[in-house]
Design a protein around this nucleic acid. Structure first.
Lengths: 209, 209, 209, 209
DNA sequence: AATGAATGAGGATTCATTCAT
DNA sequence: TATGAATGAATCCTCATTCAT
């Protein structure tokens, strides 16, 4: 009937419940295995009709899921990022807070990674808006570029650096959420990765000087 | 009847044909959308039964696909890596040759990335052997550790560095294969990324000294 | 979605319809040939998906079918058995009423025989719970044993006798349902078989004395 | 090519090998699950083509299997039957030797029972010639009728009695081959069942008198 | 707002059989 | 004789979606 015709800002209880169940299911089984039937089961619903009623389709549901997780992550990370002083410190805060979300919100993070990596529709097209994917690197790239102009970073291609940063973060997060292999704690890995990219961006000289 | 009972070293022609079609299909549509029907169609087969005849199941097929691509990639990259002198140069050769495969073998590379990221069976378990995934970082990690002992690299956690390197490579490759967005050429991006990690590993000091 | 999650005591209409179609199909073609497609066709359904929707699988369907038939048979026979006076008379009533079901409910009876004999899953295991099979002979065996203690029957192994009785009944039923060969009427055969086992159990002496 | 066009009396090694594998497979998995692929595997053949080459179809194979088993059984039983003196003794020998085959040849016996019970083709028609099924009871019926004329048996319907005898035997054999439930030994059960039917046929009076 | 039955296409896989070699 | 690749129909089952209630 309605199926997201008029998107209410505040999710209607049911919608939120379904989104939460979808996140859990995707984190557990992966995007492709997360069928309406399994999501409905996890949500305690007796039928998949309920999901179709609230969402226009799987694409719509996964979009809601993505938005929910991105909002959660932004809230979590932004708090630490704005508290940082100077661009190098903000870069460190970005990397560290992102990875430390593994401990704080492992399930949504894992679900998001899976969606980013694997969500395609029947024709093979990406299910998530490409801008959602590029928005992240675009913002980082802009920051890096500004920092370079301000002499806070050395010389490098900010586009490649942004992709490297996000790629490295995601790979590390995948490892940390995947395994019980407790080589190092998330916090230590986060610091290590931040150190790595501060070195790579030549931030040490700029900051210490 | 046979379905991979005795794996012949030299693929049986048909097997190779099916593997090739599977690679194309996975690169195009993604692992999950790459159904037997679509693979058979691309291979010019009249039925999916033929695939089941040659492979014990989808897991068996994807394993053959993975092995094929890994073998191709190893051949391609190894040539350049062994030609490099010294561990920093080898790291550079590894990164650059991996990314430059985007130009040489875009389709298999894209397929491999999709399999690594998304291949799960019905129960959500990873389809590819976890050791295949870790083997790559393990080898890099060992190289880095050896280089550190030899004074060729600075101080850092080699495990985190290895994950960062592969994560960054894969993210860059994904961008390059995905898009027509020709910001920079693969070759330039490759050099940039190699520079980035030589800086991050503190290889400049070791190499210049 | 539901697929027998919560088994409703009163069949849901569709369920009953599918069970009825399954009984007919099994009686006609045998358990193994009774595919979902053929059952759906007989039930007037447009797809097999409907059957999977109502039953968790073929094993679940055949269980429902078995229960339905056993319930029918029990109702039919019990009426005549309880009306009989004394254990020998009850044995006669059991045998006769069972065989006379051939005339009253030939289709379900034939289906049940086929399921009992031939229902196996892909691994060769019996589809029907073994206790369903033994329960029948166990009850007869207990009756016979009690009758022996009461002096109503002679000396014999009640376990073997119970198996002989059910085996003979089933063989006779199979012949009667199978063929149009009208050698004797079901009723006459039933009396003959009851006579046979009353003699075999030495019931004549007990009853006439 | 040939596929049983000219049936050689002495099975061509391969044929015998396939028949043997088929018997084992049917005994283990049941007739319906005994596919050409599984039979070929058990026979150590690399392809099902070999089976189709030697047999005109599944019906042809199952006929060969049936004939092989019936021949084995006849040989085994006939020896004991002809040694018996008088028709009641012959009936006892028939019943006992049949059941005691459970110990001597459990696998073929189990296979034969399964074929008799379940072998149907795609249209639901019995795979085995009906005369094979009736031949057994017909012979017993004739014996019983002759015995009645000679005063060796009492009064009963010999057709029903023949069906009861074979039905009881088969049910007992099924129990004995099926289970590990060692209530009684096959030999004891055999004697019990023979006693049962000698009583039922009124043979005691005839023989003792 | 919610239900749950129904749909029909598509999923992987197994089947007996054929045929060129 | 024998092989094994190829066929295409048929197997059960799951899918997202629709619709009357």
């Amino acid at each position: 009937m309605r199926a997201n015709q008029e998107r209410t800002f505040t999710e209607s209880g049911r919608r939120a419940q379904i989104v939460a169940a979808a996140i859990e299911t995707i984190a557990e089984l992966g995007y492709q295995q997360a069928s309406f039937a399994k999501i409905a089961k996890k949500a305690g619903l007796s039928s998949t009709g309920m999901i179709s009623y609230h969402f226009a389709g799987k694409a719509d549901l996964v979009r809601a899921v993505t938005e929910e997780i991105v909002a959660t992550a932004t809230t979590y990370m932004q708090e630490r990022i704005v508290a940082a002083d100077g661009r190098p410190a903000r870069l460190r805060a970005y990397i560290e807070s992102n990875i430390e979300m593994v401990a704080a919100h492992p399930t949504p993070l894992r679900a998001l990674l899976d969606i980013m990596a694997g969500a395609r529709d029947a024709s093979g097209e990406l299910q998530v808006d490409a801008t959602v994917l590029t928005a992240r690197t675009d913002r980082i790239e802009a920051e890096l570029r500004d920092g370079q102009r301000a002499g806070e970073f050395g010389a490098f291609d900010p586009a490649v650096m942004a992709i490297a940063i996000t790629g490295a973060i995601d790979a590390l997060v995948a490892r940390l959420t995947l395994a019980t292999e407790t080589g190092s704690s998330p916090a230590r890995c986060a610091t290590e990765l931040a150190d790595l990219f501060l070195r790579a961006t030549g931030a040490e000289h700029g900051s210490t000087a």
